[in-house]
Structures are given as C-alpha cells and as structure tokens.
C-alpha cells in the first residue's frame, strides 16, 4: 500500500526547525464495545476547524486550544471552516467530507445507529502545545462527551 508519510511532510514545512516530537505510544487503552450499534448514541469529534457562523472562528494557523459544540441538527449551510493547513475547498462545498453530519443523521433515521448526541465537537488541528492539549483541552472535550452520555465516539481528523 502506497501512502504519504506525514511525518516527512510536516518536517519539510519547517526545514529550519528540529524534528517535531510526535507522540509515540506502545500500549493502547481499550474499552470493549458492548452496546449494539442500533442502540448507541454516537458523538463525533472533528479536527476540521468547522464552526457555526454564529460562533467565533478558529485561529487558523496553529495552537487554538478551544473547541466548538455543533448542535446535531445544524443546517450545513450555517457551517464554515477556519483552518489554514489543509485544502478544504471541497469541504466548504460539502462539509460531509470532513464533518459527515448529514450522513450521520441519515444513519440515525434508518436505525443503523441508535441516535446522535445533542452536540458534536470540532476544533482546529495543529495544536503543538502538548501540555495544554493533554492537560486542559482533551479533559474539557472528554467531559462534554461524558456528559452527553455518548456510547461510541467517531473521530474524524481532517
């Protein structure tokens, strides 16, 4: 399988910088999936930089440690993208490329999944402040997911 090595891509973007220290994990945390999908409330987290037009846009370059809560019933015409580091021309025309909210609503309607949590979370990738990301932002996002009683979380990087 031929695939692009993004470690090399990122390094080539910053030729004068020392190599970024990517997180390397050996072990993997694991929670078994026991609840049937057709009874499960699904939450989505997307790093696409998607926001609702009545919300503040993300800082589009890097290190925006905030996230947005997008209501599950949001009209996709009310969404916009703030992110300087991926080609989102297609996603601007069809948000489902990186934030498949319309497809998830259809899967809920047909009973493939039990339903959707009331909100889905979005942020702007490219967070290089690992201490704050791990110590503040991830706990805040996780707390929202827990509060909404999600049974399964779909993560969609952009």
């Amino acid at each position: 399988m031929k695939y692009l090595k993004y470690v090399d891509v990122v390094q080539s973007m910053f030729p004068d910088q020392p190599p970024y220290q990517w997180t390397v994990n050996d072990s993997v945390p694991w929670t078994p999936i026991v609840k049937p999908l057709a009874e499960s409330a699904v939450a989505m987290i997307s790093s696409s930089g998607m926001y609702r037009k009545d919300q503040a846009p993300f800082k589009p370059d890097k290190n925006d440690l905030s996230f947005r809560e997008i209501p599950a019933d949001t009209d996709v015409r009310d969404l916009a993208i703030s992110h300087d580091y991926y080609d989102h021309r297609d996603a601007e025309q069809d948000v489902n490329c990186v934030f498949p909210i319309e497809r998830l609503r259809e899967l809920a309607a047909e009973g493939f999944i039990g339903g959707l949590t009331p909100f889905h979370l979005t942020f702007m990738g490219r967070v290089f402040r690992k201490t704050q990301f791990l110590g503040e932002m991830i706990p805040a996002m996780t707390a929202r997911i827990e509060a909404m009683k999600a049974d399964l979380v779909l993560l969609v990087p952009a």
Partner: peptide, 23 residues
C-alpha cells in the same frame, strides 16, 4: 486526534477513528 481517542477509552467510552495519515 488519536490522543483524544485514547483518553476517551481510558475513561470507558469506546471510540472509532478515521485516518488518512497512516504513519
């Protein structure tokens, strides 16, 4: 993104991730 998935699983919430960056 993977770090978020890992934290959720540590807290007992199962996850499934999409990825286009294999490495």
């Amino acid at each position: 993104m993977g770090l978020i998935a890992r934290t959720l699983e540590e807290k007992g919430i199962p996850t499934v991730s999409l990825s286009s960056a294999y490495d």
